[in-house]
Simulated scan of single mutants.
Amino acid sequence: MYTLGEFIIDNKKYFSHSIESLLRLFSAIKLAAKAIHKEVNKAGLTKNIGSSGKTNIQGEKQQKLDFFAHNIFINSFRNRDVVCGIASEESKNFIILNKKECTSDNKYIVLIDPLDGSSNIDVNVPIGTIFSVYKYKKKYNNYHLTINDFLQKGYKQILAGYIIYGSSTILVYTTGNGVHGFTLDPSIGTFYLSHPNIVFPNENKIYSINDGNYVKFSNGIKKYIKYCHKEKKNGMPYTARYIGSLVGDFHRNMIKGGIYIYPNTSLYPMGKLRLLYECNPIAFITEQAGGKAIDGHKRILEIKPIDLHQRTPFICGPKNMVSKLEEFI
């Protein structure tokens, strides 16, 4: 079986940047993922479960494991000397990892949701990490990071992925040449290729949306939900599946075939999910798996960010399902 490192090396011709730096990026990601895997799997036995009593920049209750995961990733990337700056969903401002900042051509910008769905920790529901990587482009002789280095359009990502901590821990990523998944063997701490060349299946029957917000949806979304309830040619309506963890819902839908919908509502007119930390990386993966990702009107990867914590409506899944929803919108 391929290990993650072996797979990257054997497919180096498909990555236009430094393979050494890519391996160092993944070395940091793997180390942090294994530390979080270990902590998540014993969460009920430690003091790291439950709320920290604080709120993050999003105004959401911060779980103890949110803080743990945030720090683990910051330290892992800092020790690999390949990332010059990180923006995290748990931090108001971007973080410079070393005093020299970006001093070589192999430096990268990372945006990360350290622990997606963390409110589900207490009830043992799958949670995850979402990450997005951009190449830092130096400005003449100026190597100092600015906010604009982080506000790049999603199509400029060179690497995106997520780690899902569930019945097994799986790392899924794309560098723009397909989507591949690697499952952690915890007995030896190695990620092995388990899901090569993931694409949305042709048979798509799942829709994922929080129906509890139905009265707050636009008419187009309401009509689509009614369409999903109707009997189809095969005699069955679509099946509703919703966990409330983006990574968990998306991973299932990409493997089983389904659409994920988190539209704007009267309560969240600009949407609720974060463009940089959640939607851009998942949209990149979606497109590489043969799907489509939109905000309801335009391609997610074409949106120009104006704020680190910008929110957006988010719809992603197989092209045929997303296009059908667009008809109702």
Rank of each mutant, 00 (worst) to 15 (best):
302 E>A: 08
99 K>V: 11
13 K>I: 12
137 K>Q: 10
293 A>K: 07
153 K>T: 06
127 I>K: 03
274 R>I: 03
44 G>R: 06
131 F>G: 10
28 A>G: 14
304 K>Y: 12
133 V>R: 05
191 F>C: 01
228 C>F: 02
11 N>K: 12
38 K>C: 06
242 Y>E: 02
70 H>M: 08
198 I>N: 02
298 K>R: 09
51 S>R: 03
323 S>G: 11
145 L>F: 08
317 G>P: 15
306 I>T: 14
27 S>W: 14
305 P>V: 07
42 K>Y: 00
277 Y>N: 01
289 A>P: 09
148 N>E: 14
103 T>E: 14
106 N>S: 12
326 E>H: 08
36 I>H: 04
9 I>K: 15
18 S>E: 13
274 R>S: 02
182 F>N: 07
293 A>T: 05
276 L>F: 02
188 I>L: 10
41 N>R: 13
255 I>N: 02
141 N>M: 13
28 A>F: 12
150 F>N: 05
103 T>W: 14
284 F>D: 05
238 Y>N: 04
67 F>Y: 09
82 V>N: 08
104 S>Y: 04
282 I>T: 05
128 G>V: 13
191 F>Q: 01
27 S>N: 15
292 K>G: 00
251 H>G: 01
121 I>F: 04
108 Y>M: 05
72 I>E: 11
63 Q>I: 03
114 P>S: 00
139 K>D: 13
162 Y>G: 03
195 H>W: 09
326 E>L: 11
100 K>W: 10
21 S>K: 14
65 L>G: 03
26 F>Q: 02
153 K>V: 07
88 S>F: 03
34 K>Q: 09
76 S>K: 11
71 N>I: 01
324 K>S: 09
257 G>L: 03
290 G>M: 00
282 I>R: 01
